[in-house]
């Protein structure tokens, strides 16, 4: 174990001990924060997966990914507004139908958007110097934010509360208030991540993606269509980000055009924390960062959360650049 690893584990351990102390002293408050953190973390995990998959396969920090996530939420708001009758009902069949339409619509649309971005903006620069695709990605991020800004201006967009809510759809266990949507977020994210894991490990395309991430040239020689594989990676990443956007909208009911910048950076931090390029790592990293943010909001103050998160980002890269679960990049 190197000095860096040691520092990393000492810091993690300290944080865990401090939190454990809180858990013992104020158990119900702690549990309540835990619920928030898990829900946030689930969404970060969904977004982080897209960053990690894209980085794993073409070593690009896809700055536009966070904005694809936001765009997903915008699309969801529009689709829901179209389908749902009275959004403030606690539970109705029409809301359920709206949800069943919204998820695939937003996800597929985002998939298409992301494939287009890859095709138009990234693919021509695949062999250009590092800086070119990076700036293009930032430009794409501005472009998407710009589109949403034109759409809604600087105002908050309301997302209808279509999930079952209100009396009968929440409960208090041991002083912890849990709503249906808290459970929904975590379960939905868990299902999506599991589907992704199965896909990556079992399907032919998933194997092609793993192979391409390992060694692009060799994969090409083995007859893998690199362009198609990379496009698929962007598509799947965007499906998850789109779903994440819808879930975020349903959970918080409010979105703004620039939501993706901060959320994207936090999700990216999650991916780095879990070990960039590592898919289970990104899911785990998202949960850890979500919890960290929730605890930081509660115990340190929400204005410090951003400092804490980016402090973690820097700390991880300095002490343990391979992240929690390590990278898949083999020693060369």
């Amino acid at each position: 174990m190197s000095v860096g690893d040691f520092g990393f584990f000492v810091i993690c351990l300290t944080a865990i001990v401090l939190l454990a102390a809180q858990a013992v002293v104020h158990p119900s408050e702690f549990a309540q924060i835990l619920v928030f953190g898990l829900a946030d973390g689930a969404i970060y995990a969904l977004v982080a997966l897209g960053y990690t998959m894209v980085y794993g396969i073409i070593e690009l920090i896809n700055f536009a990914h966070g904005d694809v996530f936001t765009l997903g939420a915008y699309v969801a708001a529009a689709v829901m507004g179209f389908f749902a009758g009275t959004s403030e009902d606690t539970f109705s069949v029409s809301n359920l139908v709206a949800l069943l339409v919204t998820f695939p619509a937003a996800m597929l649309l985002m998939g298409a958007v992301n494939i287009t971005i890859e095709r138009v903006a990234y693919r021509p620069l695949r062999n250009a110097p590092r800086l070119a695709p990076l700036i293009t990605a930032i430009g794409m991020s501005f472009l998407l934010e710009g589109i949403m800004f034109v759409w809604s201006g600087p105002f908050t967009v309301h997302v209808p509360d279509l999930l079952p809510h209100g009396p009968g759809f929440n409960t208090t266990i041991g002083g912890v208030f849990i709503e249906f949507k808290d459970v929904f977020v975590v379960v939905a994210a868990a299902i999506l991540v599991s589907l992704l894991a199965v896909f990556i490990n079992r399907s032919k395309l998933g194997k092609a993606m793993r192979a391409t991430a390992q060694d692009r040239d060799a994969s090409q020689l083995m007859g893998i269509n690199i362009n198609r594989t990379i496009a698929a990676t962007f598509f799947i990443g965007a499906l998850l980000a789109g779903a994440g956007g819808v879930i975020w909208g349903l959970y918080f009911n409010a979105i703004t055009y620039n939501l993706g910048f901060r959320t994207g950076l936090v999700a990216f931090t999650s991916a780095v924390f879990g070990g960039i390029g590592n898919i289970p790592g990104a899911a785990l990293g998202g949960m850890v960062i979500g919890l960290t943010a929730a605890f930081s909001d509660a115990y340190i103050g929400s204005k410090w959360t951003q400092v804490v998160i980016f402090g973690i980002l820097i700390g991880v890269l300095v002490f343990r650049p391979t992240g929690l679960l390590g990278m898949r990049v083999p020693e060369k």
Partner: peptide, 9 residues
């Protein structure tokens, strides 16, 4: 903002 992004790309 949109135009700036477009110009960068």
């Amino acid at each position: 903002f949109l135009l700036y992004g477009l110009i960068l790309v």
